[in-house]
């Protein structure tokens, strides 16, 4: 599903590379936590998977494709098989819940009938059935993140990337979001989630990948957040 081979990434004007010689493989259907302090390279790791950045050295394979060899005009098609969720939700404030989710389908040219069918379905899945016509501003943080997850999942991606999806939420709400992500994972979707939330990682007992100063320092199946953080 995802393979990193000796990946390094250096940004211009920074003397320390963001990632150094990272090699790992994530299988189809896995649920992976990506942990590490700020500046450890988590964001770079995710951006490489999304091909927002290219590697300086090494290769990244996503869904069986070498991203370095993927031409620019094919990138959108690759991204259609990925879903992304962020800490700040990134919803469109002037569109309703249903419109926000439908937007992800409209812009890749899905038919109206398809959209009418899949939007209520996915909103039910994330537990927002009946709130289709609310505006994002009227919803709680947890509900907004559910909308964002619905939008990420509506095109049935094979891989879901979540960048601190619970970063802005209280522990109670976070648990709900994690249950949702777990349910999505059980449908066969691979989930890669960067997080700082120790409690969640310790509870879920999933594979944990830890980065420190750009190096892969721990890769543990059924791991915990860390020893002393």
């Amino acid at each position: 599903m995802i393979r990193f081979d000796n990946v390094s990434k250096a940004y211009p004007k920074q003397n320390r590379p963001a990632l150094r010689d990272v090699s790992l493989e994530i299988e189809k259907g896995e649920f992976v936590f990506l942990v590490g302090s700020s500046g450890s390279g988590k964001s770079t790791f995710l951006r490489l998977i999304l091909r927002e950045e290219r590697t300086s050295h090494g290769q990244v394979h996503v869904l069986g494709k070498d991203l370095a060899r993927l031409s620019n005009w094919k990138v959108p098609h690759m991204r259609r098989q990925l879903g992304t969720v962020f800490q700040d939700f990134r919803l469109l404030p002037n569109k309703t819940v249903a419109e926000n989710v439908a937007f992800a389908q409209e812009v890749i040219g899905k038919s109206r009938g398809e959209i009418r069918k899949s939007v209520p379905q996915v909103l039910d899945l994330v537990g927002l059935g009946g709130k289709e016509d609310r505006m994002p501003g009227e919803l709680s943080g947890g509900e907004q993140q559910r909308v964002a997850i619905a939008r990420a999942f509506v095109n049935r991606p094979r891989l879901l990337i979540a960048d601190e999806p619970t970063g802005n939420l209280d522990p109670q709400t976070s648990v709900g979001i994690m249950k949702l992500l777990d349910r999505i994972n059980r449908t066969g979707t691979t989930v890669v989630m960067a997080t700082h939330d120790q409690q969640i990682v310790d509870q879920m007992r999933k594979r944990v990948i830890e980065l420190e100063k750009g190096r892969l320092v721990r890769d543990q199946s059924r791991g915990v957040y860390g020893y002393q953080h």
Binding site: L50, W73, P76, F103, V107, I108, R151, A152, N155
Partner: peptide
């Protein structure tokens, strides 16, 4: 930029954006 950012992430073609 918010709209175009989302479009990019869900894989809208650059032509479409």
């Amino acid at each position: 930029r918010r709209e175009t950012g989302i479009m990019r992430l869900v894989g809208a073609s650059s032509f479409y954006i």
